[in-house]
Amino acid sequence: MAALSICEALLLALNDHNLLPEAEILGILRDAAAAHENAVAPEGDREAHQAAAELINRIIAGGNSVRRP
């Protein structure tokens, strides 16, 4: 979760400084979620990947990373 928080903060900064548009940020988040959703791993690790995908999808749905209204 710490890594996800750091990445979220970096994406916010990139957007705030007009270095990366919202569409690109959402694409990065969607790609990351998909990578975790489709991960091939042992059962215990699979649960961790699913949890990571759920967190990323909540960020997308909540608009947190790009401060959408």
Rank of each mutant, 00 (worst) to 15 (best):
I56Y: 04
I59M: 04
M1C: 13
A32K: 06
L14R: 02
D45Y: 14
E54A: 12
A2G: 10
A13V: 07
A52T: 09
E8Y: 10
A48E: 08
A52W: 10
C7A: 14
D16C: 04
R58V: 12
V40K: 07
L12W: 06
G44T: 10
D16R: 00
G62E: 03
A33D: 04
A33Q: 03
S65L: 02
L55M: 14
P69H: 06
P42F: 14
Q50C: 09
N38Q: 15
A51L: 15
D31M: 15
E37L: 15
R30N: 15
L11K: 01
E24W: 10
I6S: 09
A34E: 13
P42R: 04
A33N: 03
A13F: 09
R30T: 15
G44Q: 11
G63F: 00
A13R: 03
L55S: 10
P21T: 02
A51Y: 10
G62R: 02
L10C: 09
R30Q: 14
E22S: 05
I56N: 00
I60C: 01
G27A: 07
L14H: 02
E8I: 12
S5G: 15
P21I: 07
L26C: 08
E47Q: 09
P69C: 08
G27F: 15
H49G: 01
E8T: 10
A41E: 02
N18F: 12
L19P: 00
N15A: 10
R67Q: 04
G44K: 08
H36E: 12
E54Q: 12
L26S: 05
P69I: 08
R68Y: 11
A9D: 05
R30A: 13
L29E: 01
R67L: 07
N38S: 11
G27L: 09
D16L: 08
A48I: 12
I25K: 01
C7N: 06
A34H: 14
S5T: 14
C7T: 05
A53G: 03
I60W: 00
Q50H: 12
I25N: 01
A23F: 08
P42W: 09
E47K: 11
I25R: 00
A33E: 03
I28V: 13
D31E: 11
